[in-house]
Design a protein around this nucleic acid. Structure first.
Length: 422
DNA sequence: TCTGGGGTCCTAGGACCC
DNA sequence: TCTGGGGTCCTAGGACCC
């Protein structure tokens, strides 16, 4: 058996923990730059606000006070996520953190005669009690079915946040009503094709197809989903975090940037952030890609550009100094005067474990020295906060973003700690 | 006027090897 | 005119996830 613990409307729930007055009211969390909706309370969904919808399209609701909005506060969400994970780990031998708001739990270690329905309800209740976050816990024989079960919990309050879906007749009953597009592994393309061409609408319509049909239409990934729906586990459980094969930092800017120095300062900062992540997972990278782009929504001015360039390293590296030098050269090479850049990013690739780096006989970089310096920088930044020390080329005042509706960092910044009056 | 930021896996086709 | 059989690696593009 597997369980999926899924936090309900996670970012909104995080904000509500510290703003209980917003319980039961429409709340939306916005993307970086306050661009579009990335989390909505049930009440906001009912008002018709869509996932990914640009804020200006529902600005009237904000101005009239019908909806409360927050800029995204990822330090808060990350910390709340960690708390939920800690609570979950009290109830299970192994958990797989799948995303910031979802964790799978492998229940094979638990006794055969456990009442998993009661177990799920207990886990949900304890998460709420310990963290303030409402969590839906679905239990089923496969990960895909556990996802279905956790959605049921959100739909039916009578489940009290937890349900165990395992009897064949129950699974059938649920799949017959479960929307095709809500299945894990069925995205927009397949939904459109299956609905339009084949008149399929529910999970049951996929379940009852032949495996060979699924293979022909969707390939091996689809077959896995199909088998999982049939109760055959195909998606493995990963209880240790896998090293990333690619690390990207990119941002959309509040305003278009036309000045090379200003753009360099931002990109240099992205580079530092990316390489810090690289070192944190104990890896080196063999190449770095830099990209810059003008506003993709302005297509009529003839000044549109998406440029990207790749720089390779003879010896894979994790030194911010070395990678930043390459990034700055690459950027200067691409930059065109007269263009307004709206977004930029740095992508590290060819990532390998630091221990596997092949030395280059002609390499004359003092790697030992770089690595001591990086270790010191990392430890200072960990202790004193991000960007306490950095490269001179980096932006000093952070990333140029709009965050007009930012909530305080209640749990990660001493200056923002909550005040209780009594 | 205003439109996010990360990731993964699979497949097909071409280049190349023996 | 006839034109093998088996591989690997790389890349681009398409699909998906949160």
């Amino acid at each position: 058996m597997y369980a999926l613990a899924d936090c309900n409307n996670f970012f909104v729930s995080c904000e509500r923990v510290f703003r209980p007055d917003l319980e039961g009211l429409p709340v939306v969390v916005l993307s970086n730059n306050d661009g579009c909706a990335i989390a909505r309370s049930n009440e906001a969904k009912r008002l018709g606000i869509k996932m990914g919808q640009p804020m200006f399209e529902f600005r009237h609701l904000i101005e009239s006070g019908a909806v409360t909005v927050f800029s995204s506060n990822f330090s808060l969400y990350g910390d709340m996520s960690r708390r939920v994970q800690m609570t979950l780990s009290r109830f299970a031998p192994a958990i797989e953190v799948y995303s910031i708001d979802e964790s799978f739990i492998d229940l094979t270690g638990l006794s055969q005669d456990t009442d998993f329905d009661l177990w799920a309800k207990t886990v949900s209740r304890e998460c709420r009690r310990c963290t303030g976050i409402p969590v839906s816990v679905g239990v089923s024989p496969t990960k895909t079915l556990a996802k279905v079960a956790s959605k049921l919990c959100k739909q039916y309050p009578a489940t009290k946040g937890g349900c165990w879906m395992h009897r064949q007749q129950d699974i059938e009953k649920v799949l017959k009503k479960f929307p095709l597009e809500d299945i894990w592994g069925i995205g927009r393309r397949y939904t459109k094709r299956f609905k339009g061409y084949f008149g399929m609408n529910t999970a049951w319509d996929l379940y009852t197809r032949d495996e060979s049909w699924v293979n022909a239409e969707m390939g091996i990934g689809g077959v896995r989903t199909w088998q999982e729906l049939h109760g055959i586990p195909c998606i493995s459980f990963e209880d240790t975090a896998q090293a990333k094969k690619q690390i990207m930092i990119s941002r959309t800017f509040a305003k278009e940037i036309t000045d090379l120095d200003e753009l360099s300062a931002q990109v240099s900062m992205f580079c530092s952030m990316a390489v810090e992540k690289l070192r944190k997972q104990g890896s080196c990278c063999g190449c770095v890609t830099v990209f810059i782009t003008t506003n993709r929504f302005h297509t009529d001015n003839g000044r549109n550009q998406f440029e990207s360039r790749l720089a390779q390293f003879l010896t894979p590296t994790d030194s911010t100094l070395e990678i930043n030098t390459a990034v700055m050269h690459t950027l200067m090479d691409m930059f065109r005067k007269g263009y307004g850049y709206k977004r930029a990013g740095v992508v590290l690739g060819d990532i390998i474990p630091s221990g596997n780096v092949q030395q280059d006989i002609f390499d004359n970089t003092d790697r030992e020295r770089h690595s001591r310096l990086m270790a010191v920088m990392d430890s200072i930044n960990r202790r004193e906060g991000r960007n306490t020390v950095g490269l001179a080329s980096q932006s000093l005042d952070g990333i140029k973003m709009n965050r007009e509706h930012l909530s305080p960092c209640y749990t990660t910044d001493w200056n923002d700690i909550i005040t209780v009056h009594c």
